[in-house]
């Protein structure tokens, strides 16, 4: 193999080693040869590129409030469809996806508390079967995300917001724990019967 530290080195073919049932393939460095360049930056982080990307994100951030509004509206719409469906035929997929997207994006949009509440909701929807989901608790989460967005609450300095997070999280832990206990009991009865 040529020296992988040399950016002008020719691209090597992959090298394979055979250990019977297992083959180890050392990649030939195609991408490295294509895109690696010498840099003075310590730790291999291209500070200029990162700063340029941060600046580009800052320009984009003018749209974030509207984007967050769209995501909150999607959550509300998905919740309403879920709530109005017959209780034995509820599809949680769209509601979960809406909550999961807010969990992942709201912090980037500048709403970390909403991200946290949506994360709790995602956990609830992920852990409990649709037939056993408590509508009231889901409703509290959706209302909280909506209120945080409409009141433009963006940081943890707001004591009401942090108390809401705490209470919702505790309520979810109780629901999940109760459901797990019930499932254990159902299993025990099935086994003994």
């Amino acid at each position: 193999m040529s020296n992988p530290q040399d950016e002008n080195a020719p691209v090597d073919a992959n090298i394979e080693q055979d250990f019977g049932d297992t083959r180890v393939i050392h990649l030939g460095g195609t991408l490295r040869a294509k895109a690696a360049v010498r840099s003075a930056d310590a730790g291999g982080v291209d500070e200029m590129s990162v700063a340029a990307a941060d600046a580009a994100m800052k320009d984009l951030s003018a749209d974030f409030q509207n984007w967050m509004g769209d995501e909150v509206n999607r959550l509300i719409a998905a919740y309403e469809v879920f709530r109005d469906s017959p209780s034995d035929n509820r599809d949680v997929t769209k509601l979960f996806r809406a909550a999961h997207d807010i969990r992942g994006q709201a912090a980037v949009f500048g709403y970390p508390i909403a991200a946290e509440i949506a994360g709790s909701l995602s956990k609830l929807l992920d852990k409990i079967e649709p037939d056993y989901l408590p509508i009231q608790l889901i409703s509290h989460h959706v209302d909280a995300v909506k209120a945080i967005y409409r009141n433009n609450i963006r940081d943890y300095a707001n004591p009401v917001a942090t108390q809401i997070i705490h209470n919702l999280r505790r309520a979810i832990d109780r629901v999940v724990e109760a459901r797990q206990k019930a499932m254990m009991e159902e299993m025990r009865i099935r086994r003994s019967g």
């Binding site: 992959n14 049932d21 297992t22 083959r23 180890v24 393939i25 050392h26 990649l27 991408l31 490295r32 895109a35 690696a36 291999g44 982080v45 291209d46 590129s49 990162v50 990307a53 941060d54 994100m57 969990r103 992942g104 994006q105 912090a107 980037v108 991200a115």
Partner: peptide, 27 residues
Amino acid sequence: VKPISAKGLYQRIAKVVLNPRPFIRTE
């Protein structure tokens, strides 16, 4: 893991380009 940042994304790209892990083939 979200929330995504410029530095986090750059680091992952740098890792897969500059220090790719060997590949393994088993059954």
